[in-house]
Amino acid sequence: MTPAEALLVLVAGLGAGTVNTIVGSGSLLTFPVLLALGYPPVVANVSNTVGLTPGSIGGALGYRRELAAQSARLLPLSIAAVLGGTAGGLLLLGLPPGAFRAVVPALVLLAALLMAIQPWLSRRMRARRTGPHPVRIGPVLLTAVFTVSVYGGYFGAAQGVLLLALLATALDEDLNLLNGLKNLLQALVNLVAAVLFTLTADVAWPPVALLALGSVAGGGLGAVLGRRVPAPVLRAVVVVVGTGVGVALLVT
């Protein structure tokens, strides 16, 4: 990489860490950058997951207090997330590279759509959360978390949006508590996929190091900017970037 390209990756990692802390889907900023630098889609996806994992872990650690308040549900949901993340990673590595290349535009556009409808999902969450019969930990919720985690291990963008929507629909809890739980599950998915990719896949290590550095710093920055920058502004940036990349991939 040239110095300018290295700076671009670092800034993208910083942006992804910041956006993930505030609204989620930061991968829609970093994945296109790796593609633009010429990395094949599978290598870009693998490197993106590995590089953003430290930021995800840092975000989960920042919610230690919220996680301690719901310790009884952590183990079963964590097991579902780990199994799903592993399955998704194996699916990515087991399918021909052409299969991932073929579905990438749809996945990017899906992630952008999920980001765009996040306010609607939040309203639906609140409505469902006040219902008289919230779902507790059971086979349905565990299967749903596993399924979302498979998606996260295969292609991580917007998995946080999906997880938070799922948890808040199923569990009658404060959203701040559930955001902590979402961060933990997302970090576990990213971690198991990152370990798998590190051991078995072609990883572009220079951008991984830059993404890791940027995402960790961005996580701390997001905690500050989240009180000052309107979430709709950041959401709009992510949606526009993701939609543009998805359309560009469709026509190339």
Score class of each variant (00 low, 15 high):
194 A>M: 09
169 T>K: 04
141 L>D: 11
221 L>N: 07
139 P>H: 11
150 V>F: 03
216 V>W: 02
195 V>K: 03
168 A>I: 13
221 L>I: 09
150 V>P: 01
179 N>L: 03
201 A>V: 12
211 L>S: 08
175 L>Q: 06
216 V>H: 03
223 A>N: 05
200 T>R: 15
212 A>L: 06
148 V>A: 11
209 A>M: 14
154 Y>F: 14
151 Y>H: 04
213 L>Q: 08
225 L>V: 05
190 N>Q: 13
144 A>Q: 14
190 N>T: 15
151 Y>F: 12
145 V>Q: 06
178 L>A: 02
196 L>Y: 03
206 P>L: 10
170 A>T: 09
163 L>P: 00
144 A>G: 07
170 A>N: 05
213 L>R: 03
151 Y>V: 12
148 V>E: 07
183 N>F: 07
213 L>Y: 02
161 V>G: 02
154 Y>R: 00
175 L>A: 03
187 A>S: 11
168 A>G: 15
214 G>F: 03
145 V>M: 10
171 L>V: 08
143 T>H: 06
147 T>Q: 11
153 G>N: 10
216 V>G: 08
159 Q>V: 08
219 G>A: 14
209 A>V: 12
219 G>V: 08
219 G>P: 04
174 D>E: 14
157 A>C: 01
205 W>M: 06
161 V>Y: 02
187 A>P: 06
139 P>D: 11
140 V>W: 15
138 G>C: 14
175 L>C: 02
173 E>L: 09
138 G>R: 06
142 L>Y: 07
188 L>H: 02
193 A>H: 02
220 G>C: 11
223 A>E: 10
223 A>V: 12
155 F>N: 01
182 K>S: 05
199 L>I: 13
142 L>Q: 07
140 V>C: 14
161 V>R: 00
223 A>L: 11
194 A>V: 10
173 E>G: 13
187 A>N: 04
200 T>C: 01
162 L>S: 09
213 L>K: 03
221 L>A: 06
183 N>L: 03
213 L>A: 15
156 G>V: 12
169 T>W: 13
205 W>I: 00
183 N>D: 09
221 L>M: 14
173 E>H: 15
193 A>P: 00
146 F>Q: 07
150 V>L: 06
158 A>M: 12
179 N>M: 01
210 L>H: 15
